[in-house]
């Protein structure tokens, strides 16, 4: 049995995305309860060439500090 007349009482997603869209729509009465940080990765199709590309990307990431949050 679904509660609250078929309308969500909460939503699970990235709060930054929802608040960005809410701001664009002029919706100001939303708030977010933080649960967890989640890494954003690049997902390659498995192939010999892409394994080389992943190695290049990993090396670039190791040299930079973009993933040290």
């Amino acid at each position: 049995m679904k509660l609250s007349s078929d309308r969500s009482s909460a939503a699970i997603t990235d709060p930054k995305v929802m608040l960005h869209l809410a701001n664009k729509e002029g919706i100001t009465d939303l708030e977010a309860l933080f649960i967890m940080k989640k890494e954003l990765v690049m997902a390659f199709k498995d192939s010999t060439e892409n394994r080389k590309r992943l190695k290049i990307l990993t090396q670039l990431l190791m040299k930079s500090d973009v993933n040290k949050k």
Binding site: A10, A11, I12, T13, D14, P15, K16, V17, A32, L33, F34, I35, M36, K37, K38, E39, L40, V41, M42, L57, L61, V66, N67, K69
Partner: peptide, 9 residues
């Protein structure tokens, strides 16, 4: 990880 997002309620 290349960047970070969040999951929340």
């Amino acid at each position: 990880a290349i960047d970070w997002s969040e999951i929340g309620i």
